[in-house]
Design a protein around this nucleic acid. Structure first.
Length: 583
RNA sequence: GGCCCCGUAGCUCAGCUGGACAGAGCAGUAGCCUUCUAAGCUAUUGGUCGCAGGUUCGAGUCCUGCCGGGGUCGCCA
C-alpha cells in the first residue's frame, strides 16, 4: 500500500471533476506532485495542484486550492485539508489510514514497496564490463556495486531486468594478455623468464601458464607465435573470466549474460551486418574529420575514413568506424552490440561506465537511436572515482598485481556489506572517499553499521518481548491480530509515516536510476528508530515492550516489525545483509 | 580550445525529475546509562547554496556567460 500513490490518484480525480473540460487538463494533472512536506507543520501530505493549475486556468492559486481542499475534505479518510503559502493544499489523514498502511507492511512483507512501475518492460543493465586481462581492482568496484543495486532496484519496481557483462575480448590488449600468459607457460616448462615491459607482470597468470602446459604439453613452444596465440586465447580468456566471476562473487554479483565482443567480429559477423545496415540507411559516409580543436595529436593524419553520422543523432561530431589498419574501431563493435540488444527486444538500456568514459555518452546514445530508429534509449550512468583513505590519509594496500589495489583485497579487508553500502552511500556522479578506518568502525560515523544496527536492534526488541512477555504470540499470524489503534502517540506516528514513505521513495529512486536514494532513506529510517528507542529509556510509556500491557506491546511490535521489514527490503536491494545481532 | 561532471555550514555530503523559513553527520558546546544493545540519543552554535544575469507566481534545482576543481578529446577499450 502506497499512501502517496493513493492520494495522488484521489487528488487527480478531484481536480478532474472540479475542472472538467479545461484545456490540456490531463497534461496538467501529470505535473501535480503529492509528497511528504519537509516541515511537519505542513501536514502529512502536501500537493502543489493549485499552483500548477493557476496559470492555465487564469485563476488565483489560493482560490483553486480552497476548492480542492473543500472537495478533499469530503473524503472520509481526510481529517484536515488546508490551504497554505502560495497555494499548497496540506492534508492530514485519519489515523485509521496510517494504521491500515502499517498493517499492509505486515501482510505484504518482502513485497512491501514493490510496484509495477516498469510494467514488465525489458531493461538491460550493462555493468562492470572490465577488460578480461586480470583480476578486478578497486576502480571497477563502484560500477559493479552500482550496476547490481540499480538492477535490483529496477526489478523491485516491476522491470524485467537483465544484468549483462560485455567482455572486451577482441582488442589488442588481449594479444598482450596471451603473450604474457605464454611467458608463464615457458616458465612452467622450466625456462627462466623475465616478463618484458609492456606485458602483464601479474602472478595471477602463473597458474594459467601451468594450465597451458597441462593442456598443450610442450607443443606450443615450437609453434610460431601467432598460431600459438590463437590456440591459447580461448583458454586464457576463460581463465580470466573465471577470475573476474570469482571477484564479482565476493560482492554477490552475478550477471545473467556475458556477451563476448569477439563474437561480433569476423566476416559476415554482426559488425559487418550492422555496417551494411547503416550504409543502407545512409547513416555512414566516407569523409574527413577535423582534428580536435586546440589540441592536434602529434601523429594526426588527415585521411578519408568511414564515418557514422553521429551528429544527426545528437553527438558533437561524426565518429570513425574503421581504423587506419582496416580493422574496426571499438565504437563500431559497440554499435553492433547495442543493435544486438535492440534486436533482443530491449527498449530500455542502462550502461554503467567509469568516469573516463564520460566523453563516450553522446556517441553511444546517438548510435542506439540510429540503430533502433528512435525506438530505444540508453541511459549512461557514470561512476566517478573512488579515493582510498585510511584515517583520512591516502592509502595504498599491499599489491599483488602491478600498482593496483585489488577488489578482493578491499572486500577481504572490510567485508562485502561495508564495501557495497559505502559504494552506494553517495551519488554515482560525484567522487567518493572510501576510508578503511571508518568503514570498520562500529559507531554512528559508519553508516553501514548504523543501519545494520537498527535492524539488529529491532530484532533485539523481539527477543526481549519473547523473554519478558512469554504469553504473546509473536508469529506473523499473532502480530496480524494486534489492535493497532493502541498506537496513539506522536512518536508512533512519526515512525509510521517514515515507513509509509518507502513505496514512494523506492519508485522515485527507480525512475531516477539512483540507488543511493535507497541508502540515504535507510539511514534516515534507522535514525528515526534509534531516536524512538532511546526515548523509551526515559519515558517508559514509549518503550516497545511494555510489560503488563499486551495490547500496546503487540501493536508496538507491529510497528517494529514493519520498520524491520523495510530495512530488510531496502538492504536487499542494496545487496547488504540484515543481521539479527551484531557480534 | 571543444565536450562532460562537480562547486551547498570549519570538514564529509543529502536535497525526492522547480515549491513553502536550505537539511544530516562529523568537529565545537551543554546534557542523558538501576530500565528493550549508551555500538545509541537530546539540545545548541554555524550557510551571500562559486559569481553575474535570465525564465517562472516560485530557482540550490532550468537557461546563458564567467571563476575554480576533475575527466575526456580519430587509428585505447
Amino acid at each position: 500500500m502506497d499512501i502517496f500513490a493513493e492520494f495522488s490518484a484521489r487528488i487527480a480525480a478531484a481536480v478532474a471533476a472540479l475542472f472538467d473540460g479545461a484545456e490540456g487538463l490531463d497534461a496538467l494533472i501529470d505535473r501535480i506532485v503529492v509528497e511528504p512536506p519537509r516541515d511537519a507543520g505542513h501536514g502529512e501530505l502536501s500537493t502543489n495542484a493549485a499552483m500548477i493549475l493557476a496559470k492555465p486556468l487564469g485563476r488565483n492559486p489560493r482560490q483553486i486550492a480552497a476548492e480542492i481542499a473543500e472537495r478533499l475534505l469530503a473524503d472520509p479518510d481526510v481529517a484536515e485539508a488546508e490551504v497554505a503559502g502560495p497555494g499548497f493544499v496540506n492534508l492530514r489523514l485519519v489515523p485509521e489510514l496510517w494504521l491500515a498502511a502499517l498493517r499492509a507492511v505486515g501482510t505484504e512483507g518482502a513485497d512491501y514497496g514493490r510496484s509495477d512501475l516498469g510494467a514488465g518492460q525489458k531493461v538491460n543493465v550493462e555493468f562492470v564490463s572490465a577488460n578480461p586481462t586480470g583480476p578486478m581492482h578497486v576502480g571497477h568496484t563502484r560500477g559493479a556495486v552500482f550496476g547490481d543495486a540499480l538492477a535490483a532496484l529496477m526489478a523491485f519496481c516491476g522491470y524485467d531486468v537483465t544484468r549483462e557483462y560485455y567482455i572486451n575480448d577482441a582488442g589488442g590488449q588481449i594479444d598482450v594478455l596471451a603473450r604474457s600468459a605464454l611467458m608463464r607457460y615457458r616458465e612452467a616448462l622450466g625456462e627462466t623468464v623475465e616478463i618484458p615491459k609492456g606485458l602483464y607482470p601479474g602472478d595471477y597468470l602463473v597458474p594459467v601458464g601451468a594450465h597451458l602446459r597441462q593442456v598443450f604439453g610442450d607443443t606450443l613452444a615450437t609453434e610460431n607465435e601467432s598460431d600459438a596465440l590463437e590456440r591459447v586465447k580461448p583458454l586464457i580468456l576463460d581463465a580470466m573470466m573465471d577470475l573476474i566471476r570469482k571477484d564479482l562473487g565476493k560482492l554477490n554479483i552475478h550477471h545473467d549474460v556475458f556477451f563476448s565482443e569477439r563474437t561480433l567480429h569476423g566476416q559476415g559477423g554482426e559488425i559487418d551486418l550492422t555496417l551494411a545496415w547503416l550504409r543502407q540507411n545512409d547513416m555512414v559516409y566516407e569523409g574527413r574529420l577535423d582534428p580536435p580543436k586546440g589540441k592536434t595529436p602529434e601523429d594526426w593524419e588527415d585521411r578519408e575514413q568511414t564515418l557514422f553520422r553521429a551528429t544527426d543523432y545528437g553527438d558533437d561530431t561524426d565518429r570513425p568506424l574503421v581504423k587506419s589498419d582496416g580493422s574496426y574501431t571499438y565504437f563500431a563493435a559497440d554499435i553492433a552490440y547495442h543493435r544486438n540488444k535492440v534486436l533482443r527486444g530491449f527498449t530500455h538500456m542502462i550502461d554503467v561506465l567509469g568516469a573516463d568514459h564520460s566523453g563516450y555518452i553522446k556517441r553511444i546514445q546517438a548510435a542506439t537511436r540510429a540503430v533502433s530508429e528512435g525506438t530505444a534509449e540508453v541511459d549512461v550512468r557514470i561512476c566517478q572515482l573512488v579515493r582510498l583513505l585510511k584515517n583520512g590519509e591516502p592509502f595504498k594496500m599491499s599489491k599483488r598485481s602491478g600498482d593496483l589495489v585489488l577488489l578482493s583485497d578491499v572486500v577481504d579487508e572490510v567485508g562485502t556489506d561495508a564495501t557495497r553500502f559505502m559504494m552506494l552511500f553517495r551519488r554515482n556522479d560525484a567522487s567518493l572517499d572510501f576510508d578503511f578506518a571508518v568503514v570498520k568502525e562500529q559507531t554512528r560515523d559508519n553508516p553501514v553499521f548504523y543501519v545494520q544496527y537498527a535492524h539488529a536492534r529491532s530484532c533485539s526488541v523481539f527477543r526481549t518481548a519473547a523473554r519478558e512477555m512469554a504469553g504473546l504470540d509473536l508469529t506473523p499470524a499473532g502480530l496480524a491480530t494486534a489492535e493497532l489503534a493502541a498506537l496513539t502517540t506522536e512518536a508512533d506516528y512519526e515512525l509510521i509515516r517514515v515507513v509509509a514513505q518507502w513505496p514512494r521513495l523506492v519508485a522515485t529512486a527507480a525512475r531516477a536510476h539512483e540507488p543511493h536514494r535507497v541508502a540515504f532513506y535507510l539511514y534516515d529510517l534507522a535514525s528515526a528508530f534509534h531516536a524512538y528507542w532511546t526515548r523509551g529509556r526515559e519515558e517508559s510509556d514509549l518503550r516497545f515492550v511494555v510489560p503488563g500491557d499486551e495490547r500496546l506491546t503487540l501493536a508496538r511490535l507491529c510497528l517494529v516489525d514493519a520498520l524491520r521489514q523495510v530495512l530488510r527490503n531496502g538492504l536487499a536491494i542494496l545487496g547488504v545483509s540484515a543481521p539479527e545481532e551484531l557480534s
